[in-house]
Amino acid sequence: MTTQTKFGLGLLALLTLLAVVGPLVAADPNAQRDLLNGTLQPPSLAHLLGTDEFSRDVFSRLASGARISLGVAVVAVAVAAFLGMVIGLAAGASDGGLSGLLRRCIDIGLAVPRIVVLLVLLSAIGTVPMWLFALVLGATGWPAMARLIRGETLRLRHAQFVAAARALGAPEVRILWREILPGALPPVLVAATLGVADAMLLEAGLSFLGLGAPPPAASWGGMLLESRSVMAVAPWLVLAPGLALVAATSAATLLGDALRRRLQPDAK
């Protein structure tokens, strides 16, 4: 295990701890303690990361935001991987018209900028609950996954062991599921891990634009948005969610690279 991998695992452990245990031990993230004297307090023992302009505890908000930001990213990637897997397998295994149609769908999905689609969709929906936000994020992320799976399926469907399975009477669905899919998974696993970083940044970006978690819910992108106006007097408000985002995306990227080295040693 390389140093980078250990670092990535360490970051992941810290963030998981923050998301799982943080909200249990920290104070209520939405409690407005003292609107007269308690706003924009710098970090202290009472408030580890200070308070924001509504005198809410920043550490509590960071911890509850971890649940939202990480949760949204993971769910979004899972949705994207599932859709991509189904569509990619179908595109790779079918012949003729269906295959061409699905391939064009994937190409179109890849060609249209994801951020534009998301902006249009989210502003059309208006206020979105977090689960729907995650679904929408995932539903726009499948083309890259589908492309990967389709490629792997095309490579594997002509493999001798697939012919051997067919010669022994295995039905086509079973061949897809038991023979081809397991072999197609490694690159998907890598892409999914790296995709978590992407999804997290997208979520933060969209929240920053006001399209994410509706206030007062805390998400890291939303925290950045709220702290923008007071950045000069209270820089810790920007630093806390900003550094958390850097840590989370770094963890995902480092672990994705580690998986790639492990699962696809020949890929560069």
């Binding site: 493999a159 001798q160 062991f161 012919a163 051997a164 399975a165 038991r178 023979e179 397991p182 072999g183």
Partner: peptide, 8 residues
């Protein structure tokens, strides 16, 4: 070698 599924 190629007739057996390498991941099972």
């Amino acid at each position: 070698l190629t007739s057996l599924n390498p991941v099972m």
